Computed example of a mutant assay.
Amino acid sequence: MKIVWRRSAITSLLALDRWRGSIELPPIAPYLKDTIQKFFAKQDLSIYIPGRHVLIQKMPVDLRMVLVSVGKSDPYKVFYRITTNEIEIFLIRHPHQKSLA
Results as ranks from 00 to 15, higher is better:
residue 1 M to T: 13
residue 1 M to K: 06
residue 2 K to H: 12
residue 2 K to R: 08
residue 3 I to Q: 01
residue 4 V to I: 14
residue 4 V to N: 03
residue 5 W to Y: 05
residue 6 R to T: 12
residue 8 S to F: 01
residue 8 S to W: 00
residue 9 A to M: 06
residue 9 A to K: 04
residue 10 I to W: 01
residue 11 T to M: 00
residue 11 T to D: 04
residue 12 S to V: 11
residue 13 L to W: 03
residue 14 L to N: 12
residue 15 A to I: 09
residue 18 R to K: 09
residue 19 W to P: 06
residue 20 R to A: 10
residue 21 G to I: 04
residue 21 G to P: 00
residue 21 G to F: 00
residue 22 S to H: 01
residue 23 I to T: 06
residue 24 E to L: 15
residue 24 E to W: 13
residue 24 E to K: 12
residue 26 P to A: 08
residue 27 P to A: 13
residue 28 I to T: 09
residue 29 A to H: 07
residue 30 P to N: 08
residue 30 P to H: 05
residue 30 P to S: 09
residue 31 Y to Q: 10
residue 31 Y to T: 15
residue 31 Y to S: 09
residue 32 L to M: 10
residue 32 L to V: 15
residue 32 L to W: 13
residue 33 K to Q: 15
residue 33 K to M: 14
residue 34 D to R: 12
residue 34 D to W: 05
residue 34 D to L: 14
residue 36 I to T: 10
residue 38 K to Q: 13
residue 39 F to D: 04
residue 39 F to V: 12
residue 40 F to N: 06
residue 40 F to M: 10
residue 41 A to G: 01
residue 42 K to S: 10
residue 42 K to W: 02
residue 42 K to F: 02
residue 43 Q to P: 06
residue 44 D to C: 10
residue 44 D to V: 13
residue 44 D to W: 04
residue 44 D to G: 08
residue 44 D to S: 09
residue 45 L to E: 03
residue 45 L to H: 05
residue 46 S to W: 00
residue 47 I to E: 06
residue 47 I to S: 10
residue 48 Y to S: 08
residue 49 I to W: 00
residue 50 P to I: 13
residue 50 P to M: 06
residue 50 P to F: 07
residue 50 P to Q: 05
residue 52 R to E: 09
residue 53 H to M: 11
residue 54 V to R: 01
residue 54 V to D: 00
residue 54 V to P: 00
residue 54 V to C: 00
residue 54 V to S: 00
residue 55 L to Q: 11
residue 55 L to E: 14
residue 57 Q to H: 05
residue 58 K to C: 05
residue 59 M to I: 08
residue 60 P to I: 15
residue 61 V to C: 02
residue 63 L to R: 11
residue 63 L to E: 02
residue 65 M to D: 08
residue 65 M to F: 03
residue 65 M to C: 13
residue 65 M to K: 10
residue 66 V to M: 02
residue 66 V to N: 04
residue 66 V to T: 15
residue 68 V to Q: 03
residue 70 V to N: 01
residue 71 G to Q: 07
residue 71 G to S: 13
residue 71 G to A: 13
residue 72 K to N: 15
residue 73 S to L: 09
residue 74 D to P: 03
residue 74 D to H: 07
residue 76 Y to S: 06
residue 76 Y to T: 11
residue 76 Y to D: 05
residue 77 K to T: 06
residue 79 F to I: 07
residue 79 F to E: 01
residue 79 F to N: 04
residue 80 Y to P: 04
residue 81 R to H: 09
residue 81 R to N: 15
residue 82 I to R: 03
residue 82 I to A: 02
residue 82 I to H: 01
residue 82 I to N: 02
residue 82 I to V: 14
residue 83 T to P: 00
residue 83 T to I: 14
residue 84 T to G: 00
residue 85 N to H: 09
residue 85 N to G: 08
residue 85 N to D: 13
residue 86 E to I: 11
residue 86 E to Q: 13
residue 88 E to M: 07
residue 89 I to L: 10
residue 89 I to N: 02
residue 90 F to S: 11
residue 91 L to C: 12
residue 91 L to M: 12
residue 91 L to I: 15
residue 91 L to H: 08
residue 91 L to A: 15
residue 92 I to P: 00
residue 93 R to S: 12
residue 94 H to Y: 14
residue 94 H to L: 03
residue 95 P to Y: 02
residue 95 P to A: 05
residue 96 H to Y: 08
residue 96 H to A: 14
residue 96 H to D: 12
residue 96 H to K: 12
residue 97 Q to T: 10
residue 97 Q to N: 03
residue 99 S to F: 03
residue 99 S to T: 11
residue 99 S to N: 02
residue 99 S to Y: 03
residue 100 L to K: 02
residue 100 L to D: 03
residue 101 A to D: 04
